[in-house]
């Protein structure tokens, strides 16, 4: 039995979500192969070969793979699928986009967003926005699975010495093409990988007020997040959103400012190690999950916090 992990990368860098996915693969106990599908991504293949626990890297270099279009990544994965008992990818927008295509082409009912591996065919996954955890067992020959990165501690990026085997993409999908990308420019860490996150909610009152969070984030080396209410109100872009409909995070420290704590937000951050809540409403549900709660006006507290750090 062998597990194929599909690497998430930028063509120059292997992303940390891949290390979490390899960690999940290790629980299966099989040999682990990693597919690096990209364009001029040799450095990624080299990085993948060094990852702890990886037995082989399959590198496919083709300009049609540069932007990881779901149709191409899925078709390639299906071509390579023979002989693998498990196919895993991170449950990020990358993995969510192409893995169901792989499953459908293999006639497999995929299992999304697992948070634990119980056996080679049984997994746990959250349903109903994390309000319930289902234990599910697959009856398919191949298990096609996406992995919630925050639920698995990353394996070491160094220490392995796998062989890199180059293969080619047989044909590209002609009916879709990449037009452009607008990535949020930020000096701060990515939300899903940050050790500290400070998030604002509707209580922030405006997008401009988020600079108060940014100043504190810069002192802590933190990422800035937001609740869905703050995104819906137009304060910040959607990629700031932490929650079941946004990003799932589990940092060492999560500071929720002016966030009431709707179920959908809690589903995205309740696995954080330490949670701090700052809210003037002492009845706010966020205090029920917070390790440290401060009932106070955020506009008074944030300048004080900035000074104190």
């Amino acid at each position: 039995m062998t597990t194929l992990v599909i690497a998430e990368h930028t063509n120059s860098e292997l992303l940390p979500s891949t290390l979490n996915t390899v960690a999940a693969a290790k629980f299966l106990g099989n040999d682990i192969h990693v597919l690096v599908a990209g364009h001029n991504a040799d450095s990624v293949a080299e990085a993948a070969a060094k990852v702890e626990g990886v037995a082989k890297v399959i590198a496919v270099n083709d300009e049609k793979l540069e932007h990881a279009l779901a149709e191409n990544v899925a078709n390639l994965t299906v071509e390579l699928a023979e002989g693998y008992s498990h196919i895993l990818a991170p449950a990020t927008t990358f993995g969510k986009n192409f893995m169901p295509r792989v499953a459908a082409k293999l006639d497999v009912q995929m299992i999304s967003d697992i948070v634990s591996v119980e056996s080679d065919d049984t997994f746990k996954r959250p349903v109903y926005a994390g309000n319930a955890i289902a234990t599910v067992q697959s009856a398919d020959n191949v298990k096609v699975v996406t992995v919630r990165a925050t639920a698995f501690d990353a394996v070491a990026a160094e220490g392995g010495s796998a062989d890199v085997d180059s293969k080619t993409l047989s044909s590209g999908f002609e009916k879709s093409s990449f037009v452009g990308q607008e990535l949020t420019e930020s000096e701060r860490p990515e939300l899903t990988g940050a050790k500290v996150i400070i998030s604002g909610g509707r209580g922030m009152q405006s997008g401009e007020n988020f600079h108060m969070l940014e100043e504190i984030a810069d002192k802590l080396g933190a990422a800035v997040g937001a609740s869905r209410a703050a995104v819906d109100a137009g304060f910040v872009p959607n990629d700031y959103q932490v929650g079941q409909t946004g990003k799932i995070v589990a940092p060492e420290l999560y500071i929720a400012v002016g966030i009431s704590g709707a179920i959908q937000h809690l589903a995205g951050m309740k696995d954080s190690k330490v949670i701090v809540a700052i809210n003037k409403d002492e009845e706010a549900p966020i205090f029920q999950v917070a390790d440290y709660g401060l009932v106070a006006d955020l506009f008074k507290v944030l300048p004080e916090l900035k000074e104190a750090l």
Binding site: P126, I133, A134, T135, V136, S138, A139, I275, Y292
Partner: peptide, 16 residues
């Protein structure tokens, strides 16, 4: 194709 063996409440987090 996938059988649900069990559905549980997530582990509760204690208020601090």
């Amino acid at each position: 194709r996938v059988k649900t063996l069990k559905v549980e409440s997530p582990p509760a987090r204690e208020a601090g």
